[in-house]
Amino acid sequence: MLNIDNIVAGYNTSVALENVSLDIPEGKIVSVVGANGAGKSTIVNAISRLVSVYSGAIRFDGKDITSMRPTQVVELGVVQVPEGRDIFPPLTVEENLRLGFHRLAGRKDAARRYEERFSYVTGLFPILRERLKQRAGTMSGGEQQMVAISRALMADPRLLMLDEPSLGLAPMIVDQIFDILARLRSDGLTILLVEQHADEALKLADYGYVMGTGKVRAKGRGEDLRTDPTLAQSYLGRMAEG
């Protein structure tokens, strides 16, 4: 569904990704793991067109999106849950969800689609239904992550990208979030998951990529990468245990 072909990318002329290629097949979860600074987030932001791509191409459904604007990528249904959640703290939960719905809001059947997305999302996270009028910034970290994921799902994405969703969350909450991701896959969603928690991310993934300093160091089935002892030592370090 999404195909990254040999890209060189980075922020303001510095190179953060060197000749990275990556494939995300429809209906699968692809996890990108690696140490801090390995370039994992840059992949997500290159797809969202927030960082410069100097060479190579990114294709979505065969269409070249490399020179698109960030808003056009969203329009296609490629939606990101940013690192650190980045909800809109002073706005209410409901307003955050409405902003996520922005992609579909101009369409003819918007009212019906909103109801449909809203009941899907609150089915996944029933707690949000009671918190609609609460300012999102006053919620706990785990709840904020739920808002961030729900907000992205309101857009009815075709590809959902999550940048470090476990960051700063208690292990129990992380498990809960990963369970939701598995459920989203069984509902047919395609997911790109960028994670430092390599073990869990690879366990969940159909396919995995291991990044090290801007390059893809290994790729394969998630389970194979997870159990590969050389990878655990060289690129995942202590992350493999935690």
Partner: peptide
């Protein structure tokens, strides 16, 4: 709502489209 969201965080607003 888009105006307010942009004021809070333009980059995140961009990610909403």
């Amino acid at each position: 709502l888009s105006v307010r969201a942009t004021g809070v965080n333009p980059r995140t607003a961009l990610l909403m489209g």
